[in-house]
Design a protein around this nucleic acid. Structure first.
Lengths: 208, 208, 208, 208
DNA sequence: AATGAATGAGGATTCATTCAT
DNA sequence: TATGAATGAATCCTCATTCAT
């Protein structure tokens, strides 16, 4: 008895189970369509348990969103840490993006879906992959490796294309693994974005 | 116009008001988050009126989706009717796409959002703009105007970029009107997609 | 046009169709479970039509109940008109009862069901077969043909047995036609009820 | 008793209150005519409480029906346990039947009414008094104590008569307590059913 | 912390009845 | 009379949240 209490104290709580369960359900059905009962059942916990850790279902969703988004961005940041050259960096972020999407499909689904709809109001104050893309693009334009376009337009161009692939895979329009589309996709993007004027563009790797 | 109103009155139906109200609410909040009471209030109708015309809120949403998607595609199809040359055709569909998005922002929002989430299960059996894009791309590849990529990948590339723009505008990342981004965007897309090998690409307009 | 109006005037109304449709639905599902829309659909009439002829669904049901009950009783009365001898009379009423139940199964069902539940409050002021049974029994006791039991008890005994048969047929417990059970049933009833004391019973027909 | 209450409190359940309230309302007005709000009000519980214990009002009604029917049959079975002789057994079951009807008038009403209408679809798969009657009759016929009639016909005869009494009492046609009618009713039934040929029938009590 | 019964506001849907045509 | 769209109260059911244990 003592031991059990001690163990519970040590191992702490059902927080992780609840987080995991909620994430998956939110990813599959959306926050609104997921009931607290659903979460509790999946986490093998009583309904009330959720309220020990979060004030409401909404807060749980918001925590999941912000933390996972931060983590997603961090994964991508880690991949370009120390790498120079815009093309290479784009390649690496995109690779990291799809690695994440494939390793954590539920997290990925949840983040994308929630960004667009149910939790979109959180985006402005959330650290997110988009910020990273915009930075890389801006630096690429400044360095002359990229064509002179409005950075947000270029970001929309890149991110739109990148995020559409998993959608099409889920719809069954694309059959192969996401990884297999990276190279051709990068080519499409790069041909669109690369600078074509005189010098700057010729040796991008010198710059970085 | 007069006549239409008259007819509607004569046929004695609040159907159009309900459709209009529901569409706007669905676009703003999603189907699930919109209550029948919301719709009734906005349409200035009793709640029960909805059930004379549709069996449920869901059926109303489904009709709105399918009919508007059909209309959306038709608008785009009309714009390329008789036009040859892949670049021109892409330009015109994209133009039609944004014209639609700007003239019917509620319809556009609803279609995009519902496609991705609440009504995505309808997509396979729905006639949609995506079908048109895939066709144009396929023909462009066959005619040698476009690089040899998997058509669905190219479609994801184009559609991803195109649909991201309105998202970014809504987020406030892009400030100008959608129209103003068409030309630079087309350039990005075209540079990515155009064929670069010997001849075929040089005179694409000859082909069409 | 003139003719149509004239015809409608002449043929009058949709009253009979509505009555027929309502009766069948009430018999099958009960009054409460039958909607005005159900009735209108079955009668091939608009919902509002019902309110031309009755103030409410309830009034329609009440009219159906009282009129049919009266008719039911009249059918049975006609069968014993002029016949003497309690046993014979019982035989004939029971025969008439089952003839009615088989020729007008919907009317029968409706009357039985409504008597017991939804319209039971009408029974006291309604002319009904029960009244007839009680009369026959009373006369049979007075004439000495029947055992001296409380007439209502004897009536419950007879009516209970009689009405149970169609129930059991519907449940599939009894397989043959109702008609085929009349004679054995009458024997059971008669053996139970007939007077056993010396004289009275011997010449019942003298009395009547 | 104390313990039971304690347990109920501890297990923290309003299940019994809801069952009790629902039963009474169903008995009085029928399942359909009883609203969930009615039940909740009578049970002094919020409407939602019902749904913790049953999936729907229908399921609650079905449980009440099956459980009470089982109990009803068990009460009657207990009364003939170990008793021999068909007449005695019939007497005892009928006695038990009316004892039940008088001690648990609500349960009785509900069972009869629901059997005939709203829940009649459950009867085939429900253990019910009818099964017991059929068994006793069959054994009575086999032993030669009863006339050779189709057992279901005899069952209809007995059950019809028995169940009609409470109806007539409620209608005010019979004034005394049900108990007081048992003996005369048994006589009516027995005279109808008893074997009249040769020996076997003469001393039924020798058999048991 | 955990449990799970209870709460009750709110949501979707039904349906008798009304009423303009 | 007939029509059928509209009404809106009433109904069943859901679900986030609370709370006694």
């Amino acid at each position: 008895m003592e031991e059990v209490l001690y163990k519970e104290k040590r191992l702490g709580t059902r927080r992780p189970e609840i987080l995991r369960a909620a994430l998956e359900l939110f990813a599959r059905k959306g926050v609104r369509a997921t009931t607290v009962k659903d979460i509790a059942r999946k986490a093998r916990v009583a309904e009330g348990a959720l309220y020990r850790h979060w004030k409401s279902k909404k807060e749980l969703a918001e925590e999941l969103f912000c933390e996972n988004m931060k983590h997603f961005k961090a994964c991508m940041e880690a991949e370009i840490e120390g790498f120079k050259g815009t093309k290479l960096r784009v390649k690496r972020v995109v690779g990291a993006f799809y690695t994440f999407a494939e390793k954590e499909p539920m997290v990925y689904r949840f983040l994308i879906q929630a960004s667009l709809y149910e939790l979109s109001y959180l985006l402005p104050r959330t650290s997110k992959p988009l910020d990273l893309f915009v930075r890389i693009i801006q630096e690429g334009i400044e360095s002359g490796e990229l064509k002179k376009v409005e950075p947000p337009l270029a970001a929309a161009f890149i991110i739109g294309a990148i995020t559409k692939l998993p959608d099409f895979r889920e719809m069954g329009i694309l059959k192969k693994e996401l990884k297999d589309y990276i190279d051709p996709l990068i080519e499409l993007l790069w041909e669109g974005l690369k600078a074509r004027n005189g010098l700057g563009k010729t040796f991008p790797s010198w710059k970085g």
